[in-house]
Design a protein around this nucleic acid. Structure first.
Lengths: 116, 116
DNA sequence: CTATTATATGAACACTTATTCATATACTAA
DNA sequence: TTAGTATATGAATAAGTGTTCATATAATAG
């Protein structure tokens, strides 16, 4: 046990923390969602889609990668409901799933003092 | 080149995306920051610190891990300015760096429809 | 000083994951 | 159906990362 000036308050905070800790399952979901947006290749896709919906070819162009790599990343983003897809003829058109996505990115940019 | 109903708009969106794409450096910073909060072990620490500042011992208790593992994770969170530290005698007391952190977590929980 | 407590960290191993290559599926046109 | 275009995906390899173990540093007490 520690012995600092605030030992008692910390112990209470720890007890509250244990009591209010989200379930493993919720923690895991959150972690997976954040992991989905924590790769440069995927962030680029999100910043690209901020300009509007696009099909895979144009996303590939916008982010400067290969069709295969982009498709793999699109799948991860879609599985995590970060983006959504709809088919249009031979193409599949992707767009951001909802307003939360850019809101989170904006907050993070604010946190880092970088404007975009 | 694709050939869907919206080819032209997508091409324009792709052009805008290229023009407005954040620099590699900014993308990397964002990715690193999100990566910092995308592990269950680190998320637990953040949810623990939501209850107030705590020293390492109590954080370890609150999240149910080992001192070494927690220390390694605290370092990652601190390096990314997600949490801050101050020494108090033999102890080091950790707390959330700023309001952005919980704001991002709240948004994400909202996105996942999980209350915490 | 020495002993003890609290925290930090380097190295190693296990595990995850991003990209590439090849190929498969989905759709359209003829 | 066949040919061509757009997208998806399995396998493999390479790079990254979390935990553990052992040990180091920091602060305090005596």
């Amino acid at each position: 046990m520690p012995n600092c000036d605030h030992e008692e308050e910390h112990a209470f905070a720890a007890a509250r923390a244990k009591m209010n800790m989200p379930k493993e399952e919720e923690i895991a979901s959150l972690a997976t969602a954040f992991k989905a947006i924590s790769e440069p290749s995927r962030l680029k896709i999100l910043f690209a889609l901020r300009q509007g919906e696009m099909c895979v070819y144009h996303i590939t162009e916008a982010v400067g990668s290969t069709q295969s790599a982009v498709s793999h990343q699109l799948r991860i983003l879609r599985d995590n409901h970060i983006i959504k897809a709809r088919r249009d003829g031979q193409n599949v058109v992707y767009s951001l799933a909802d307003a939360h996505v850019m809101a989170v990115l904006s907050l993070a940019c604010e946190h880092l003092n970088c404007q975009f």
